[in-house]
Simulated scan of single mutants.
Amino acid sequence: MYIFVLKIYQMYKGTITKKLECLIHLIYWVLIFYFTFVKNPISAHFFTPDLFLWTYFIVFVLTFYFHYLIVMKKVFKAFNWKRLFAGVFVSYLVFTFLRFLSEQVITKILFDKVNYTDINFLNYMLDNMQYSSMTIILSSFLWFVIYSIRLLEYNQIILEENKNTEIKFLKAQINPHFVFNTLNNIYSMVYFQSDKSLTAIDKLSQIMRFTTYESQKEKIRLSDEVDYIKAYIKLEELRHQENVVVDLKLELENEFEEIPPYILSPLVENALKHGAVSNTKPIEIDLKVLSGKLTFKVKNTIGTQKKDSLGGIGLDNLQKRLEIHYPEKHQLKITKEENHFRAELEIDLK
């Protein structure tokens, strides 16, 4: 749950805009300047910095924002303690390098002065560990304050969003017209004693079972979603009493990979609903799951029937659910080329 909320946080910035964040930084630096350089605020007595205090302050600022903008963002993109300690260590090395460069090289060239006249490597590294700690702590503290505000704010937003999305999702799990038409078709099959009636009942049972039970889960096995798609295709064939020509290609390295329900099937439903299908113009469906990457492509010829949004849960709802479950780890492309409709979905499952 923590990782899920963390991913959502990375998508939304809430009321703390970039301008407000810059203002917070400005106030933060005013406070640091005040407690560093003001000795007596009543008499306006300021501490006069020397050359190496200025160089330290420059290194302080550079390391502060290196840690704030790069390290903390990388660490919390996929948080674990090893990444945190590694990030802190990298910031320490950056601080040490910048300090050596500025106080032992640049000042030597410009002012013929160095801060350390006799450098012992171990002592120098330990000394900079002490000096860099304040930079890293203050940078981490500010990042955590802004992060916590955004996270707390979005916790409330995501609860409301999930509730609204769930309502839309449950309402649109299956098209009632599809069920009614299928039942009428099954009735006709039974009445005329068609040998396809039992198959149609079985496929409708699979679909209703999936809709009733599997769709309530946060994640299901990939094979379950594929079985649902196959049942839907077969039922369409039986319902229309003709072959709904579908070229289904599967290359699943791990069929037990877990995905949210109804992530793939809406694209298939849309193709079956709006596609012009024949032996020469099949619906092309290609699903690959290799090395933790899911690639799903659906292509169909556009029919003459009335177009609307994606069947099932709808395109907007699908995109919203993809953003919630796979923020910055998915890509959905919908293209129309002449009389062809193509949907391509890529998801990084790692």
Rank of each mutant, 00 (worst) to 15 (best):
I220F: 04
T182H: 04
T55C: 09
V245Q: 13
N40V: 04
L204M: 13
Q305D: 14
F79G: 01
L222Q: 07
M208P: 02
E257R: 13
Q331V: 10
W29T: 01
V179A: 05
V5Y: 13
N300F: 04
T304D: 15
A231P: 06
L53Q: 12
L310S: 14
K39G: 02
F180L: 11
I149H: 00
V30T: 07
G303C: 07
I233Y: 05
I58P: 01
G312D: 14
P176D: 10
V226N: 03
W29G: 02
I263A: 04
K297D: 13
K219V: 15
K77Y: 09
L142H: 02
K350D: 14
N243M: 10
Q130F: 15
P260W: 05
I27W: 02
L151P: 00
Y187G: 03
F95T: 00
F33C: 07
Y2K: 12
A172K: 14
R150F: 00
T96S: 12
F97L: 11
F4W: 10
D316F: 12
Y68P: 02
F66M: 03
L26P: 01
D224E: 15
L248A: 09
E103C: 14
K203A: 13
I146E: 05
V277H: 12
F169A: 06
I174T: 09
L345Y: 09
K18N: 10
L204N: 03
F256N: 15
Y124K: 01
E218V: 07
K219M: 12
T48A: 11
G314A: 10
L315T: 14
N254H: 09
V75T: 05
L151S: 01
T301L: 14
N155I: 08
A86V: 09
I136R: 08
T182L: 06
Q331S: 15
L62M: 08
L69F: 14
F141E: 09
A276C: 11
F79T: 03
K333H: 14
F47Q: 05
A172L: 10
S139V: 10
V298Q: 05
R342F: 13
R321W: 10
F64A: 02
V289F: 08
K171T: 10
T117Y: 12
V289C: 07
W143V: 03
N184K: 06
